[in-house]
Design a protein around this nucleic acid. Sequence first.
DNA 1: TCAATTATTTGTCTAGGACAATGAGCTGAT
DNA 2: ATCAGCTCATTGTCCTAGACAAATAATTGA
Lengths: 307, 307
Amino acid sequence: MDQYTKGDTGTILFNISAVERETGLSKDTLRVWERRYDFPSPVRDDNGDRAYTTEQISKLRLIKRLLDQGHRPGKIIGLDDERLERLVSEPAGDQPPRQDIAVYIHLVRSHQALELRRHLTQAMARQGLQRFVTDTVGPLTQAVGEAWMRGEIAVFEEHLFTELMEGLLRNAITALQPQGKAPRVLLTSLPNEQHNLGLLMVEAILTVESAPCIALGTETPVTEIAQAAKAHRTDIVALSFSGAYPETKAIEGLRELRTLLPEPFLLCAGGAGVGRIRRRLNGIELITGLDKMCELVRQWRAEHSSY
Amino acid sequence: MDQYTKGDTGTILFNISAVERETGLSKDTLRVWERRYDFPSPVRDDNGDRAYTTEQISKLRLIKRLLDQGHRPGKIIGLDDERLERLVSEPAGDQPPRQDIAVYIHLVRSHQALELRRHLTQAMARQGLQRFVTDTVGPLTQAVGEAWMRGEIAVFEEHLFTELMEGLLRNAITALQPQGKAPRVLLTSLPNEQHNLGLLMVEAILTVESAPCIALGTETPVTEIAQAAKAHRTDIVALSFSGAYPETKAIEGLRELRTLLPEPFLLCAGGAGVGRIRRRLNGIELITGLDKMCELVRQWRAEHSSY
DNA sequence: TCAATTATTTGTCTAGGACAATGAGCTGAT
DNA sequence: ATCAGCTCATTGTCCTAGACAAATAATTGA
């Protein structure tokens, strides 16, 4: 029941439930990997329950990232950390390093909240909300996430960053006095997907585009999404998936929603979690970037302006 | 793998994974309930996998609500829908009915988001932020929660309300240009406590009181809270617990935090979850209302103004 | 009346088997 | 050479059924 326990040497050990939360790998998967590949091979606590070390968890995170890139478990689980690291950084490759992002990251790590907020507010004023979101918030959020994966940023630092960013975006959105014209867009995520930043980014962009948003926050059950779309007479339903969201669950949820929502509704999904979906899904638009959401709205307007 | 299949009569059936998502009850729990209480007793599909009907799912939702209210599975699972319904609406107390709250609730239920926002903004302007939070947001949030328990408000309606309220409070907070003087307060909640509204209410009140807040959002592990308090040199650490949070967990977490944070730090806990704690906890302030938080800050200032 | 003990309830863990869906590798026809 | 179709290996999720600690209720004793 407890999330973590202390090992003999004072090291912190995590139970299988905590590891599921931390890595996004289901308990079943963790157990079957242990059976088949001998990794992870956690020690056992007094009850005989699996107890994972932080090292194992970070290796699992690394492996998860590689799976998301298309690698297969059997091929990579045996490799040592060094080789895994090389695989991760390999194809990700060589984006031009960005000075501004490095500055923000530094502010996050040195706990200068006010200074960080000031810098970001200035950037927003300089770039305008639309470009601020696509060119700064998006990449920065991703960079923070990656730094967190590598253990360079503590949990509480990431929390503070997220909170600050949410405040900033929400403020910008209300400042625009959201009204606007069709299409009306419903924004939310499926249960177990708690990341709200992506949704707020989309909301900001859509608000700039004068498309009215109904934002439900995160974790709305599929049936409720369908009800909400009908009750609010939205034209588009947009779901957000972070990179850690299990692909099969995402597809499952989207398909169910498609069945529950008859055709006139446009259904689309975005976020890092859909980037790796190769399959074409019937009647579901996969959005590969924040700017693409804009295009979708414009396209919708073009198709519905015939009168 | 498919989330739902069609039954013989054309009814939609859900697999165990979908039910977990919809109800928040784990697969393990669903299976063990079936074993022990014969409910839910789903039919099986061609693979022998459980297939749940929508009726079963809504009964499960009802049961989940009652569990959150403190009922125990063994006592209520056997009851029929009628009896369950009666239980849900039963404990609704006899507070003096408030007209304004009834109006807000009505707007929530009729999906008039813009109108609701307008009303609330007006109330805020009329009452001032401090009284708006204590006299309107607090009671309203509670009323919405209770209505949701009774099934009078749908999940998506509650989500929209929460989202709207968060935006409103965040906006008010930033508008105040938070700076201010000591004490510095760290605001967050423990893992598994996802309600952010309570934290935002406190943040709003403290901001009015010119006490600078470090808000980490929800679900920060205890060790991280301790680190954050030190890194940001806060004077007070305030945790929020909603009514559903298990009392023992709360006490456990608070005690652990008290051990990790040496004396000069003031540690306090608030929210519906601490209201029912009778025991006095060493070195931990239990806050019984939003206004009490104010008093705590004033008291702190009185004690530290000796120079 | 309240604290300490004992009994019951309840959620989550365990093991290992099964199987469908996915992806990889191969074959033969265009 | 390319591509559809087939086969085989891989992989995630579901299954059963037993165990046990934590949480809660019931009982005892001071």
